[in-house]
Amino acid sequence: MLIPHPLLGLRDAQEFTYLGDARLIDRPDPTAPDAEAAFCDYVFLRDNQAGAHRELWFHEQGDRSWLVVTRDTVTHEVLCAELARDVALSRARCSK
């Protein structure tokens, strides 16, 4: 597979390690009253969907960026790739 790195262009997937669902960016609030339940979901529960899936890839043999890659799990077509840092920062803004 080829991953369209937002800074470096198309890069072979062999340069990356895969983590999984991009929801891992949304770490629950540890001070919330239901923190334990929220963390339980966060750590253990994943949707296993056929179709567009946002997932985390680490450019380990590259620039060490974490990317959020949107990939169609049926066709392997990569629809979009963003720097996870940008995604995380925009989430933080939204939540404030």
């Binding site: 390690t17 960016i25 985390l56 680490f58 974490w66 720097l83 840092r85 920062l89 933080a92």
Partner: peptide
């Protein structure tokens, strides 16, 4: 190292 980068970029980019 990978996890530290994850924490730095994805969890606490601020």
């Amino acid at each position: 190292y990978r996890n530290m980068e994850f924490a730095r970029q994805c969890l606490w980019p601020d």
